[in-house]
């Protein structure tokens, strides 16, 4: 089966005066039609850069070094800027964290929406305006006829994010990338926006890549999840697998360290020791090894390759190899092998 989006071994670096910063170092994942994929990680883990690389909107000195990004089987890397422009907005759109800085302060909301529609479709100005009003209505903005004459500063944070969503969905893209869409918003407004995104996802049927540092958002919205650390994928799989059967020490540590709203005991939190890695001087082996409690010799010298640890669950951690869980990803060709590895993993568990 062909995936909607296929990212394979993506490497993106920033060539700074101080040296090469490997922001994304070998990220692979697939996204199917109508699915919600979450990418979770701390600041500097490369989750945003992964998204920008897919859309090729990196700012210099950032550059895609190698890898492949396929949209419905069509390779995006290497396309000319003109061709890429037809992909952006039409096929893949993005909404950013801060809705204030991503809207132009000197144009009205309507102006910006109509511009996007006229550029990407063959509608005329009048039709585009009607479409803009329709979109604003869809994202739950009241009195859209009045709102299209307003400027960004006249709207609240939640409203601005709704406008951004309207703008991103105006050409009915196949994929919507949401880069921390609710981080700048309050809890009750966040709930509104997340609910709106889920509703739109169901009615319009697009796939969503949800980038966030909040594991709660992942649990609430996503079918699948990717955990990233220092530009590497720690593990990827279905959301329940990631939450209930984490197979990477970083994910385990992360889940342990967040205070739970449900538990009543006030036990000490179990933090992850140490500080985040310096991307300029990445360690030779697993980037998490210096902070990992279970780090072994091999962790410090060699990066673990990806292993199937269960059905729909891939992790890169030497501990799994030590415990003999899973089968290497490289030797696997296609779905059958994945199935067999899953059963194998099940057996090992028993």
């Amino acid at each position: 089966m062909q995936h909607l989006l296929e990212v394979k071994d993506l490497h993106t670096s920033f060539f700074t005066p101080n040296g090469e910063v490997k922001a994304v170092g070998g990220v692979s994942f697939n996204l199917d039609k109508g699915k919600v994929l979450g990418i979770v990680g701390e600041s500097g883990s490369g989750k945003s850069v992964t998204a920008y690389s897919i859309l090729q909107i990196l700012t210099p000195p950032g550059r895609i070094v190698s890898g492949s990004v396929k949209l419905s089987g069509r390779e995006l890397i290497g396309l000319s800027e003109d061709e890429m422009r037809k992909v952006r907005g039409n096929k893949i759109s993005i909404i950013f964290q801060d809705p204030m800085t991503s809207l132009n302060p000197v144009f009205t909301i309507g102006n910006q929406l109509i511009e996007a529609i006229v550029l990407h479709t063959d509608r005329n100005h009048q039709q585009a305006k009607a479409r803009a009003i329709e979109m604003l209505q869809l994202v739950g903005i009241n009195e859209p006829e009045k709102r299209i004459h307003q400027y960004a500063y006249e709207l609240s944070g939640g409203m601005r994010q709704r406008v951004m969503i309207a703008m991103a969905l105006v050409c009915e893209p196949d994929i919507l990338i949401a880069d921390e869409p609710t981080t700048a918003l309050d809890v009750t407004i966040q709930a509104q926006i997340l609910e709106l995104m889920m509703k739109l996802q169901k009615t319009l049927g697009m796939a969503i890549i949800m980038i966030t540092h909040d594991l709660g958002v992942i649990a609430n919205m996503c079918d699948e999840a990717i955990v990233m650390y220092a530009g590497r994928v720690c593990e990827r799989g279905t959301a329940p697998e990631i939450f209930y059967n984490p197979r990477h020490e970083y994910t385990r540590g992360l889940l342990r360290s967040i205070p739970s709203i449900d538990s009543d005991n006030k036990d000490r939190l179990i933090p992850i020791a140490g500080t985040p890695v310096d991307l300029l001087n990445l360690p030779a082996g697993c980037p998490f090894a210096p902070r990992c409690e279970r780090a072994m010799k091999v962790c410090l010298s060699e990066f673990p390759s990806e292993y199937w640890v269960a059905k729909d669950h891939i992790a890169s951690c030497w501990v799994n190899v030590l415990e003999n869980v899973g089968t290497p990803l490289v030797a696997v060709n296609g779905q059958d092998a994945a199935q067999s590895s899953a059963t194998e993993a099940e057996e090992t568990k028993q």
């Binding site: 939640g158 809890v187 649990a219 609430n220 449900d262």
Partner: peptide, 27 residues
């Protein structure tokens, strides 16, 4: 009550069962 229900719980099963009260409008 609505503030508590709006917190995204980092647990997929509980998140599905969670009854969320979404407040209308802005502050």
């Amino acid at each position: 009550i609505s503030l508590l229900s709006a917190i995204p719980v980092p647990d997929p099963d509980k998140a599905k069962k969670q009854k969320r009260i979404v407040l209308n409008g802005d502050i």
